[in-house]
Simulated scan of single mutants.
Amino acid sequence: MTGRPATAAAALDLEDVSVAVQGRHLVRHVSLHVEPGQMWGIVGPNGAGKSTLLRTVYRALRPTSGRVLLDGEDVRRMPGKRLARRLAAVLQEAPGDFELSVYDVVAMGRTPHKRAFEGDSADDRAVVMGALAELDVDGLAGAAFGRLSGGEKQRVLIARALAQRAGTMVLDEPTNHLDLRHQLDALRLVRRLGVTAVVALHDLNLAAAFCDRICVMAGGRLVTSGTPEDVLTATLLSEVYGVDAEVREHPLTGIPCITVLVGAAPDRRGAREGTQPADRSL
């Protein structure tokens, strides 16, 4: 078992974050406050700015304006190794087909906790194998990462973030390529760890089931944020996604359950290119 994260869950704040790339504004004035140990889902249609926003959190992109704070400290001012001990990321883009073993890929997660050129200790090996077991890929430890299926690669990359044992995690579409069982296993694991987590998801039912709060984005802007019950409404789905949907409380779990009415005529008021949905910020 990997045990609890080595660093404590942190408060994560995005303060008026905007991002422009080559003159194109991808994210505009987004502010969020994530309490330690909360799991937030970032949802929205393609091109909403979800991945761009997450890239600013783990420093792959520099905000054009605004700041990202971890327990009040600007992440861009933190030494890289110290930030890596506190924040782990699972990216949407998988690495190329390099010929490292699965074990070696996951062992990269231990790098922030070691000195330069230091080999794996018995504790490191235990953490790595525990992370592999948590994601049900321990039997692939000796396999070449580049020869795995998309779903297997995704589970290995989540295991690498788990081996990092950071108290804060950013996950960009972590359920991508995963079958239903492993989607549930991965999100249950993040919940069980008690870390501060920000997760971009396309599946709104998964977001409703696992996230404490949901942030809805469209056109690079924050549309609304709040509990799944408050945010996931038929009106919002029509405005943001341009679909007719029914939202009901599941009779067993009490969680909002979304059914898209496939036979209904689409309402594209909020989905048309160049339009913005009504501002529903809470």
Rank of each mutant, 00 (worst) to 15 (best):
Leu157Ile: 04
Gln38Trp: 14
Lys81Leu: 05
Gln38Leu: 08
Asp13Ile: 13
Asp97Thr: 14
Leu91Tyr: 14
Val17Cys: 00
His177Phe: 10
Ser149Tyr: 07
Asp203Val: 09
Val260Cys: 03
Val75Gly: 06
Leu236Lys: 00
His182Phe: 13
Gly263Met: 03
His177Met: 01
Gln183Phe: 07
Ala265Glu: 13
Glu173Leu: 02
Ala94Asn: 14
Ala271Lys: 05
Arg155Ala: 01
Ala209Lys: 13
Thr2Tyr: 12
Ala161Trp: 10
Leu252Cys: 10
Thr7Tyr: 14
Gly139Asp: 02
Arg86Glu: 09
Asp244Arg: 15
Arg85Ala: 00
Val137Ile: 09
Ser238Leu: 07
Leu222Cys: 04
Ala48Asn: 07
Leu61Met: 14
Gly130Gln: 09
Val260Ser: 00
Glu118Cys: 07
Gln164Leu: 01
Gly242Tyr: 05
Glu134Arg: 15
Asp138Trp: 14
Ala163Pro: 08
Ala208Arg: 08
Leu32Trp: 06
Met1Asp: 09
Leu184Glu: 02
Gly150Pro: 04
His202Thr: 02
Thr196Ser: 11
Asp104Thr: 08
Glu229Gln: 12
Gly220Asp: 01
His29Ser: 13
Asp203Glu: 04
Ile42Trp: 14
Ile258Leu: 11
Leu180Cys: 05
Val90His: 03
Asp203Ala: 06
Arg191Gly: 02
Glu73Phe: 15
Leu236Arg: 00
Pro174Ile: 02
Ala209His: 10
Val195Cys: 04
Gln38Ser: 09
Ala209Asn: 03
Leu189Pro: 06
Ala209Glu: 09
Ser238His: 10
Val105Thr: 08
Pro95Arg: 13
Leu157Trp: 12
Glu246Asn: 14
Ala163Asp: 01
Pro5Asn: 02
Phe210Cys: 08
Asp120Ala: 11
Val243Tyr: 06
Ala60Trp: 15
Glu93Ser: 13
Cys211Pro: 03
Ser31Cys: 09
Leu32Ser: 03
Ala264Asn: 06
Ala159Leu: 08
Gln22Cys: 10
Leu83Asp: 01
Asp71Asn: 12
Val190Asp: 00
Phe145Trp: 12
Ser121Gly: 09
Thr111Glu: 08
Val43Lys: 02
Leu14Val: 04
Gly3Gln: 04
Glu118Ile: 00
Phe145Gly: 03
Gly167Arg: 12
Met1Trp: 15
Lys81Gln: 14
Leu162Arg: 10
Asp13Glu: 15
Tyr103Ile: 07
Val27Ala: 04
Pro63Arg: 03
Val137Glu: 02
Ala166Tyr: 12
